[in-house]
Nucleic acid binder design. Structure first.
Lengths: 342, 342
DNA sequence: TTGTACGCGTTATCAT
DNA sequence: ATGATAACGCGTACAA
């Protein structure tokens, strides 16, 4: 048997010809099967199978003026935090019978812009995005031109769109309050560039907790890294391990779990015992945090809920005339594990 | 200033009217800017900005008969292995000026089917997929109907499509040969269901190495789990830790790194020292493998290259008349770390 | 250099 | 119950 690959996909017109009916009847079989006689319908369905007919979504959405899809532009597909958020969105999309397209900007503004341009041209029903820069006017332009857009994991006050986030200042406070409770009096904040909003907020929360406890400002050290990655955590670990123990912070609060994992590894390699000589708190509570050989204390964010809430908002904006923009802020929670509980 | 949200997106026709030129001229500005006088072009571009004109991709691809996008249907977006593969694909897509849509089947055949149906209707230029079941006839049907399709991380011999994979049998052999070299004579294979091809192949490689070394068959134990997850690794750890030390395997070869990380954590919790009492080899060499507090020996696969090769094949099939289906098999490599090197 | 007319595949409306 | 036809927005050949 030879399997032929069909060269050009058949259209409703071809199906109609093959079945010996009119074009309108084929359309009825597809969209209002009840209005067509059983015998006719069968003939048409047979022809469709025979010809390998596949509906053309471009034509459909051109006609309909809207597509049946949603998109999420991720900041970093390699970070489990964002894939969990995506999963929450996926569930919502599935419920609404929409396709979800995931795009990865990989923290690059140019790639993000390209994705956004394509998505806008595709006329997706809505765009969810964790942006490289939440204040970029490009986002406003998209909303102004009519595509519902929701910012995920960042708050944009007074903007032309909804946003869903977690209270990062509070998260930072929880982390450092926990360390202070455990008796730490020299703490390092290990984070990516403060230009990243999430990082800046978590640092602010940390300093708030610190000053509220009346501790000397200088004893909360800032160890700035270039990015929120495992590699960045490792190099921070080297720097910390290099400090004489009398002056070395006894605990580190990391801006996310990737950094914390890198720090944990490097610190252990350098001979520091965790948490006896260095306690570590991460952020996000990704699955790998609990799976680390010294399970990581971390600040948990409701990741899937974040995604679902964002999707619900964008769907509401897409379909509800009376939609009102809103800023949703979830509350984080500290999960204490061995890396601080020695 | 009040920012109006435009209700309906403007078409080329609207732009033409606003600019006081004909529709064809607007089209020329878009597609052959050189054929239009500078002054006219400027007028048109001004009108476009004014009206917030966005090209309608549905109309474009309906006219063109093809879209400008590619899709990758992932088996598990939460597994870093697949996000790395996706990144390789993304680079290739970027180079070809195509959008890449990521879809996640989450190991569910129904969700996968839905995604495939949508993608086929979208007329994407090609579909890359790590399928739930590589032998599903649904895949053949898609290829037969004309959408180029490439299987990623599985080989399908004699099929109507290309496939790109890594030699999992060899990978399994490398892992177990390494353990034998290190003196282990009782080894456990910890894996998801053998119905997953990757798992079955790695197990086969393990047994091959074992019998080649002339070791008694019974001393290579199979510890079957339900899935390739951290949680599954943990429960395997409980089972191993429960075995009296005289009979307990001295090493475990895990079907992937997620399992290995779970196993590592649980074994440590149960008081087993790694690698002295239990050596561990993972598979995939995801970033977190090296970052584990006992860095994991693992079998590395060229993840990004896998994605890039698959994308190149699908693009070739989409554009090259003389395309010939091929099966590409990459070679894995063992990365030895502390979890076996005690 | 600019304008006009047609077709891409689908769907909805109207007429038969 | 079924068939004919217009419209969605764009690109392009062809005419002016």
């Amino acid at each position: 048997m030879v399997i032929e690959r069909q060269q050009l996909s058949a259209s409703v017109k071809d199906v109609a010809a093959a079945a010996g009916v009119s074009l309108g009847t084929v359309s009825n079989v597809l969209n209002r099967p009840d209005r067509v006689a059983a015998a006719t319908r069968e003939k048409v369905e047979h022809a469709m199978a025979e010809l390998g007919f596949v509906r053309n979504e471009s034509a459909r959405s051109l006609r309909a003026g809207r597509t049946r899809s949603l998109a999420y532009v991720m900041l970093d597909a390699g970070n489990p935090f964002f894939t969990d958020v995506a999963q929450g969105i996926e569930h919502a999309a599935e419920g609404a019978e929409l396709s979800l397209f995931l795009c990865n900007s990989d923290s690059r503004a140019t790639r993000e812009a390209t994705h956004l341009e394509h998505l806008e041209q595709q006329r997706v029903q809505g765009i969810l995005i964790t942006p490289v820069d939440p204040d970029s006017p490009a986002l406003d332009a998209i909303a102004r031109r009519g595509t519902p857009l929701v910012i995920v994991d960042r708050i944009r006050k007074g903007g032309a769109f909804c946003s869903v986030a977690v209270d990062d200042v509070l998260g930072g406070r929880l982390a450092v309050e926990h360390l202070i409770d455990r008796g730490h009096r020299r703490v390092a904040f290990v984070g990516g560039p403060l230009s990243i909003g999430q990082v800046a907020d978590r640092y602010e929360g940390a300093r708030l907790a610190w000053s509220t406890a009346g501790l000397p400002e200088d004893d909360l050290t800032l160890v700035a890294g270039e990015s929120l990655t495992v590699a960045s955590g490792r190099s921070a670990g080297e720097r910390l391990a290099g400090i004489p123990s009398a002056r070395r912070p006894t605990a580190a609060f990391c801006a996310n779990d990737l950094i914390a994992l890198g720090l944990l590894q490097q610190a252990t390699t350098a001979g520091l015992r965790v948490p006896e000589q260095l306690a570590i708190v991460g952020y996000d509570d990704i699955e790998f945090a609990a799976a680390a050989a010294v399970p990581l204390t971390s600040v948990r964010q409701p990741r899937q809920e974040l995604g679902r809430a964002a999707a619900d908002l964008v769907l509401d904006e897409a379909s509800n005339e009376a939609h009102h923009h809103q800023q949703v802020v979830f509350t984080p929670e500290l999960v204490a594990r061995a890396s601080t509980l020695g």
